[in-house]
Every structure is written in C-alpha cells, then in structure tokens.
Amino acid sequence: MKVLTLNFLTCAVKACKSSSDSFPLHPKDCELVSDELEVNSALLTNVLTRVDWKALTTTAAELGFPTLPATPPTPEELAGDEKMLKELHTLLMETQINEGKLVCGHCGHEYAVKEGIANFLLPNHLV
C-alpha cells in the first residue's frame, strides 16, 4: 500500500469519522518495500494539490522519513525542481507498506496490512 493512499484513508468505524484523531491512521510495526514506478509528473503535481500536507508530514515522520518542508511545493516550484519531484514520487508512489498495522487514533482499532493489502473489514462488535 502506497504512502499516498494513507492520505485518503481513515477509520471505517462511523463514530470515528467526525473525530480529527482518526486521521491520518498511524502505521505500526511496518515493513516497507519500494516498488519501482515510472514518474508521471502531471499526475503527481496535480495530486499534490489534493494531498493533506499536514497529515502527510505526520505519516512521513512516523515511517521514519526525513522531515518534509512546512508547506507543499507549488506546481511551479515542482516544475523547476526535478530532484524534489523524484523524491516526492519515491515517497508517495513507490514506497509501500508491505506488512504491518494501521491504527486509529480515536478508537484504537488496528487494521492489518498483509502482502501490501490493507483490510478495513470491521469485526461484528464495531459495525
């Protein structure tokens, strides 16, 4: 599962969605792998305008990546900075959580990630 995907996921428990503690989910005991992927700069540049940068900063820090800049690069900055584009591509698109857990900061429920696939089916008592 891509780091980018985490920016668009929250807890599946209905009562958690209105709480700011449920986003982003917190990676726990994660094994990361890198999947090589061709850079699509149009996609990345435009997706970045939709990314919650604060949440991404949290996720990156929790996964042990170097601190991200305080604000996201603008499309213009990105167009002139191939190195930054490549780094963001590596972090968002190529880095994958292969095994581990995603924890909700509100209810504490842990969602398993196995072979790169996160499972959000809830046990009966949480539905």
């Binding site: 891509k2 995907t5 929250t10 599946a12 996609l43 959000f120």
Partner: peptide, 15 residues
C-alpha cells in the same frame, strides 16, 4: 498507479 483495499461499501474508510 492506483491502490486497492479490502473494505465494505457500507463502512468505507474514507473521509
């Protein structure tokens, strides 16, 4: 470049 997760339509893990 997409993603896929296991989830229930009536309990989607999205904001």
């Amino acid at each position: 470049p997409h993603a896929a997760i296991v989830a229930d339509t009536l309990a989607l893990p999205h904001q």
